[in-house]
Simulated assay, not measured.
Amino acid sequence: MPGRPLTASSSDPSSDPAAELTFEAVLAAAEIVRTELAPSPLQAHPLLDRALGRPVLVKHENVLPTGAFKVRGGVHLAARLTDAERAHGLVTCSTGNHAQSVAYGARLAGVRATVVMPASAPAAKRDAVRALGAEVVLVGASLGEAAEHARARAAQTGASFVCPTDPRIVLGHATAYLELFGQAADAGAELSALFVPVGSGTGAAGACLVRDVLAPDCRVVGVQSAAAPAGWRSWRSGAIETAPATTRAAGLATTTGYPRTQAVLRERLDEFVLVDDDAIDDAARLLATCAHTLAEGAGAASLAGALARRMDGLVAVVCTGANASADEIARLAGSVAAA
């Protein structure tokens, strides 16, 4: 409900890249997130098992409000806003799902929000952000250009810039994996691997934080589009790197590695694979036909990774979002018709 007050925090986020990212902090975030969001299901789909030739569980984050896991970050952020943030509002940048997350959280907390999006952001996601009450500003051809403008706009207006890897956002996202590993344990399912899509890396970092405590034998594998490999390059080199983002999957279209999440991933991520955009489209088709699930490109990427990196045992993938663009739906319809 718009304007409903949430618990506030007067402390500012730490400047130390990973200082606040602990399992205990994930547990605290979960207490907040569960007051607003019901757990998303972790499900088996026999037709999907048959298509992969081995068992797989799907974490359906696509059923959450805004249609994506990132709403968890917005809900947690709303409860942890500083007094200055409440007074002067928020500015962020995004290609879509983070934008909706911050807009959703701002509406919960009753604060102003401005979202800077690149011109390439899908129209449906721009409209969704506006519907949640945030102002949308279109700037630049890439997320990097939008981010530069968003930071400048925050400095000029006195609003607070919310980085997509703000610790409050990362901890909110991590609650998806607290649920996932808890659900698997409750079902007596022992996971050999978990595949997680990587854009800014918040989900993969959160998965590692939880896995290390609840399922240390499970491998966490990051998956990124080969057409937007900045995170993969940063993970491999140990330094923050940039790369062009030409992927069709808007949720993966990051042009740089992010220090906060890379600090976690370098130490804890087991593997990192690149998949091409056609493979992501193929995975989206499988989710539609075998798991009754519409997935955007980023939401299908973890399944594409599981198809590319065959592993023994039970694996889990995460459908992180269902906000497919018109072009994605058209490609999906075409591939289904041709199958």
Rank of each mutant, 00 (worst) to 15 (best):
S40C: 14
Q100C: 15
G89Y: 01
T92Y: 03
A68C: 12
L81W: 03
T114G: 04
A38L: 14
V102D: 00
S120P: 01
R54A: 13
G53V: 12
A78H: 06
A78V: 06
L57V: 14
G74A: 10
L81I: 08
L37T: 06
G105T: 04
H76S: 09
A119Q: 12
V71M: 07
P55V: 12
K70S: 07
G96N: 10
S94D: 02
H45Y: 15
P55S: 10
L64G: 03
A44G: 13
H88R: 14
N97Y: 11
A113D: 01
P118N: 06
G67Q: 05
Q100M: 15
R54S: 12
R112H: 02
A68D: 07
V111M: 06
P65N: 03
A38E: 12
F69C: 11
V58W: 07
P118C: 11
H88I: 03
P55K: 11
H98V: 09
P41K: 13
R107V: 01
G105S: 06
V33G: 02
V75L: 07
M117N: 00
G73S: 10
Q43S: 14
P39M: 07
R86D: 02
H60L: 15
L47D: 09
R86K: 13
V75G: 01
L48M: 08
L64V: 07
A44V: 11
V116H: 01
P65E: 02
V102S: 01
P39N: 03
T66C: 14
E36Y: 09
A68H: 04
P46C: 10
P118M: 10
T95I: 11
T92W: 03
L47V: 00
P46K: 08
V102R: 00
H98N: 05
A106L: 07
R80N: 15
G67K: 06
V58D: 06
R80L: 14
E36S: 11
A109S: 08
Q43L: 15
V75Q: 01
A119V: 14
A119G: 04
L52A: 08
V116A: 04
A44E: 12
L64H: 06
D83V: 10
L42W: 09
L57W: 15
A106E: 01
T35A: 14
V58I: 15
F69G: 07
T95W: 04
D83R: 09
H45F: 15
V115W: 00
E85Y: 02
E85K: 01
G73T: 11
E85I: 01
R86T: 04
Q100A: 13
R34E: 13
R72G: 07
T92S: 14
S94Y: 04
Q43H: 10
